[in-house]
């Protein structure tokens, strides 16, 4: 199996606050990989480091065989087109409509004509479960759950090979959340996506994840197949997975 992401000895520090003290894990092609742990343990931070928004304090991260800590501007730009990111709060561009948000990278990075772009956008809007008439609304005019879906549609606009999701199902109603899980599974099968996901949603974790890493107290306390993790003897794991669904 091909390694898509390889994190080695990752070390992160904000001032005197050490957030990660040596994380090691790797993510394989076509896998849905979970990064789990209590609030504030640095899950979002790992994601930010992977997508080059945050400098590492030490260690290295390789994505598609490229070391993102030591990469030229052009290579970085090229790499960015191969992934989509769904931020915890959506982060849609507030001065653009949903349509424009989703069409933006298509217009910037491809030479496709307007009609085809509008059809691609319509398709993305449809697969994430939004209605066509939502396309012309601004982010401030839609609900929190709709923002999540629109942000996913934007993350998918370039048909990326790799998808980073920060708490994708938080703020969604249970039905939408399950649909979202199904969508992620479908996309993985269809497009051969690799998905890196931070989540607190147990149902979603059980249904979608292939493997996971659990960060607690600056280190990875468990990683591997979900079944193996659940049986481990760690206070966080026990309370987290005991909350039966």
């Amino acid at each position: 199996m091909k390694k898509i992401i390889d994190v080695k000895d990752l070390y992160t520090q904000f001032g005197a606050n050490v957030v990660h003290a040596g994380l090691n894990f790797h993510i394989n092609e076509g896998e849905i990989y979970g990064i789990l742990g209590p609030s504030g343990c640095g899950k979002s931070t790992v994601l930010r480091e992977m997508v080059m928004l945050q400098e590492l304090s030490g260690g290295s991260i390789e994505i598609f065989g490229q070391d993102v800590t030591n990469i030229s501007y052009d290579d970085a730009q090229e790499l960015r087109k191969n992934w989509g990111v769904l931020f915890q709060g959506g982060a849609l561009f507030s001065s653009l409509t949903l349509y424009e948000n989703i069409a933006l990278s298509l217009q910037e990075y491809t030479e496709l004509d307007k009609n085809l772009i509008s059809e691609i956008v319509a398709y993305k809007i449809d697969i994430v479960g939004l209605k066509p008439k939502d396309a012309y609304l601004y982010p401030s005019q839609i609900s929190g759950g709709m923002k999540k879906k629109a942000a996913l549609a934007r993350a998918l606009s370039l048909d990326p090979k790799l998808l980073f999701l920060d708490e994708p199902t938080s703020g969604l109603d249970p039905i939408s959340a399950r649909e979202f899980d199904k969508l992620i599974l479908k996309l993985r099968d269809l497009l051969g996506l690799t998905v890196v996901m931070v989540s607190h949603d147990l149902k979603s974790i059980y249904d979608t994840l292939d493997r996971a890493a659990i960060i607690d107290n600056k280190i990875i306390v468990a990683q591997g197949k979900l079944d193996d993790i659940i049986s481990m003897d760690n206070p966080f794991i026990q309370t987290f997975f005991k909350a039966d669904i």
């Binding site: 509008s118 059809e119 319509a122 809007i125 066509p132 008439k133 012309y136 269809l190 497009l191």
Partner: peptide, 22 residues
């Protein structure tokens, strides 16, 4: 198989501005 699958799942949709009264 995979290519066929993708072709099958994708469907053409239209976004028509005027349809929504814009």
């Amino acid at each position: 198989e995979q290519v066929l699958n993708t072709l099958k799942t994708v469907h053409v949709m239209h976004l028509d501005l005027e349809e929504f009264g814009y």
